[in-house]
Design a protein around this nucleic acid. Structure first.
Lengths: 206, 206
DNA sequence: AACAAATATAGACAGCGTCAATATTTTCGT
DNA sequence: ACGAAAATATTGACGCTGTCTATATTTGTT
């Protein structure tokens, strides 16, 4: 097969590897984590049930590839929110947090899979760079909001940890609809703005 | 069967329902979430693969029962930490947080299952009271540390949300070993004390 | 053109959730 | 106390799953 135009179409299917990852993301979004299977991805793409074996030795390896792509889209979502916002430090922090939470709410199953799989980051080496890409965004906004403490790596790490911990907790509770169920009586489903700016980042240095 | 002594032994197995839940907790602790199956629980207890059907119509229902028991143990862990600590407000808050994080670290798979299942809290009604039992602990310590704002339910809810969000985020990241992998270069695995007291609860009222 | 590597197919097997049919035990009304 | 009814456990079946093996097809290289 000559394949003049596009550069990806290889042969029978033309890169099946990427297609399986995207099928997995679709299944995750449409039918949830329980429906994510090697055979379902293969069927969705239109290949036999054994075909994925050539690209992903096991289901966990395919999941790792899906999670890696998830981390890339995760970082992209945060950067998109940041680009659409004003460029002062506080607004940028809030924008990244908004992106973080928006991604978790839009892709709850993927989000859960991402952060439950990263435990085995050493087993699936593709995960590391993708995870770093997302974490770099957090590091970036943290450096901007507390630049004077950057010279002290301990303080910098603490800032990152605090910011990340809080955003991650909020995103998790939002993704799992935990706020709604626990505050059912009050009917409160808090927004990020209600609670986020009350943290005193600037007072971290003492 | 007369059953003179113990009050629980019913007939063939004697309450299988509770035994299956405990088997599920063991499997979750020893072999992880992927190994949690109806058949595995049945085999561990020593009954046939169809026996659980009488008590749990489906795997999800058994998981809900396991999660409910998990929430009860979760609340008990927090209270145990609180009872072992000094009784001033700040120490009590820290003790509950320590219990929260300790439980998540000791039972990562159960912890994940708990907070991913609570989304369907309406589907499995047994979850609600157990979940409330755990949330009540958080509400309790929050009321103690910011008592003056209790008259305003909005402030109270915000305090709870902030505290919970932060602790939950920290527990999640700890349970998933996320800190370790992300701060691998610095070798930092932050402890709760490093980061928790820097939040300024007392300044929430403004 | 021919051979080797990559890639896809097809079949098999065990484990799983779930359902239906059956057997056993307990409980309850009389 | 006894038989009926309900609760509980067993067994077998079905389709789905991951994974392995053998086989076929396509691609790339020489």
């Amino acid at each position: 097969m000559e394949d003049p135009g596009l550069n990806e179409t290889k042969y029978h299917h033309g890169n099946l590897k990427q297609a399986l990852v995207e099928a997995g993301l679709d299944i995750l979004r449409e039918d949830g984590l329980a429906a994510l299977s090697l055979r379902a991805c293969a069927a969705r793409v239109g290949v036999s049930h054994g075909a994925p074996k050539n690209h992903f030795a096991t289901l966990a390896v395919l999941q790792a590839a899906i999670v890696a792509e998830g981390f890339r889209q995760f970082a992209a979502t945060m950067r998109r929110h940041m680009n659409a916002a004003a460029k002062d430090s506080k607004t940028q922090v809030m924008a990244s947090a908004r992106g973080y939470v928006a991604f978790a709410e839009a892709n709850p199953d993927l989000f859960r899979l991402m952060f439950s799989m990263e435990r085995q980051l050493d087993v699936y080496p593709d995960l590391m760079p993708a995870s770093r890409e997302a974490y770099a965004v957090l590091r970036e906004v943290t450096q901007r909001i507390a630049p004077d403490s950057c010279e002290n790596p301990v303080h910098q790490t603490t800032n990152e940890t605090m910011l990340w911990t809080f955003i991650h907790g909020f995103a998790n509770l939002k993704a799992n609809r935990q706020f709604y169920t626990s505050n059912a009586e009050t009917g409160k489903d808090p927004e990020l703005e209600d609670v986020f700016p009350k943290l005193s980042y600037v007072e971290l240095e003492d």
